[in-house]
């Protein structure tokens, strides 16, 4: 007995070492063969909490990368939308082509805005469609929100549009609710607002009324949205209203537009000229 105790005392450290190593090996083997326990893995509260914090921190470092991934995804989604829009547009063109009404014989061309200004006194917009795409001067240009402007100059591949935001342009417009004709003109101050002129004082005009194209000039079809009346002012001596129109199109944020060709415009103008002579 004494010898055994002496042996144990002498080799106690070695025995403890062997015992601990045995436990370690049992853990190792069991861990590989059995379902791991939640306490003895990184799933326990302390280690999982620590990992959670660290992953929150690490995610900040990958923000830029994630951003790039999202941008790339956005880009491909936008491209698909454009492709779908073009398909929808061509389907629309097909249906429009069947119209018999002369003032509705329209042809649409989708175009992309490749340059645009909003902060100048005379602003211009450049499109990526030109003569070879069938775009000619004096065609109307609209975005999905409303009227943009009128084509001014055309090269083979590009065209320049005079938008509403240019005092050189005056668009024939009307109040949607009572068809009262006016003229839309930009005063050069704020890219969000334009003025509606020539509305006589006996006409009923309210804030919130919708302003649309009149369809008289053959540049735009009738009833295309221009904007909504923001403010109406009329002093004692005025013969005409001062009407401030909030434009429907956000010119700072305009990417895709449609150029409208009225196939009967030339014929109509010629007839009108002959008559006036």
């Amino acid at each position: 007995m004494r010898t055994l105790l002496q042996f144990l005392a002498r080799y106690s450290i070695l025995l403890l070492f062997l015992l601990l190593e045995t436990v370690a090996f049992i853990l190792l083997v069991r861990h590989n063969s059995y379902q791991q326990s939640a306490v003895l893995s990184s799933a326990n509260r302390v280690s999982a909490g620590l990992y959670n914090i660290s992953s929150n921190i690490y995610s900040y470092f990958s923000l830029k990368k994630q951003n790039d991934i999202l941008l790339a995804e956005n880009e491909s989604l936008k491209n698909r939308i454009t492709a779908l829009e073009n398909i929808a547009e061509s389907a629309f063109e097909d249906s429009v082509a069947g119209y018999v009404y002369a003032d509705k014989d329209l042809h649409y061309t989708a175009a992309k805005v490749i340059n645009a200004t909003t902060g100048l006194q005379r602003n211009y917009i450049t499109l990526n469609k030109g003569m070879r795409d069938g775009v000619t001067a004096d065609m109307g240009v609209v975005a999905k929100d409303g009227v943009v402007g009128i084509v001014n100059a055309v090269s083979d591949k590009f065209s320049v549009v005079i938008p509403v935001l240019n005092p050189l342009l005056t668009i024939s417009c009307k109040l949607h609710k009572n068809n009262q004709i006016g003229a839309l003109h930009w005063d050069g101050r704020d890219y969000r607002y334009a003025e509606m002129l020539d509305v006589a004082r006996h006409i009923e005009v309210n804030e919130g009324d919708t302003v649309v194209t009149s369809g008289l000039s053959e540049v735009f079809p009738e009833n295309m949205l221009i904007g909504v009346i923001e403010k109406v002012a009329l002093t004692e001596s005025d013969a005409y209203y001062n009407i401030r129109v909030r434009l429907a199109v956000d010119f700072r944020n305009i990417k895709y537009v449609t150029v409208i060709e009225n196939k009967n415009r030339a014929e109509k103008l010629r007839l009108e000229e002959e008559t006036i002579k």
Partner: peptide, 15 residues
């Protein structure tokens, strides 16, 4: 080991 999900490995090595 608990942090690394390698139960037994570091225990044996560190011992």
């Amino acid at each position: 080991d608990i942090f690394c999900n390698t139960l037994g490995v570091q225990t044996a090595a560190c011992t």
